[in-house]
Simulated assay, not measured.
Amino acid sequence: MRIVIEGTDELTELLRARQTIEALLRPLIAFDARLASRGVAPADDAVVLVNDLPLPLRVRNALAAGNIVTVDDLAHCTPAKLRALPRIGRWSVLEIEDALATVGRTLELDFSRIF
């Protein structure tokens, strides 16, 4: 992303620009704060691993066996896709949803069952 602010003497324009930038950064700052509170210190382009989430070992092992290694991989899964993995049941999906919520992510929704 690129933000360009041209020089201006208008205080209202500067305040509006500041509010816009703060609104864009707020989710990222909150995400970093949640990770830091858990002892995870991500770099600017860090990839958060599933092993960094508060998940039981059996769930982490089942996800690893399904080649789901990063939080991004996990967030792109639907509950149905996770349930198709061996050793992942309804309870495990609930644990995964709770763990993703700690880092501000959710599972992908499955709209194919609705339409």
Rank of each mutant, 00 (worst) to 15 (best):
D73C: 07
D72R: 13
F111Q: 06
A101F: 10
L53H: 03
D72G: 12
L100G: 04
K81C: 05
D110K: 01
P86M: 11
G89Q: 03
R18T: 13
D32Q: 14
A99L: 10
R113N: 06
R34L: 11
P56Y: 11
A80H: 01
L63M: 07
V103C: 09
L14D: 08
P27A: 13
V47K: 10
V71N: 04
D32C: 13
D44A: 12
G66T: 01
T102E: 10
L55K: 06
I3Y: 08
L94H: 12
R60D: 07
I29E: 15
D32F: 13
E95Y: 07
L14F: 01
V69G: 02
G7C: 00
L11S: 11
F31N: 08
A80M: 10
I114S: 03
L107P: 00
L25S: 13
R16Q: 14
E22W: 04
L53C: 04
R16F: 09
A99C: 14
L25H: 12
A84N: 10
H76V: 02
I3P: 00
V40N: 09
T12S: 15
T12L: 12
D45S: 02
V4M: 03
A62Y: 02
P56H: 15
L49G: 01
S112I: 04
E108M: 13
M1A: 05
R83Y: 04
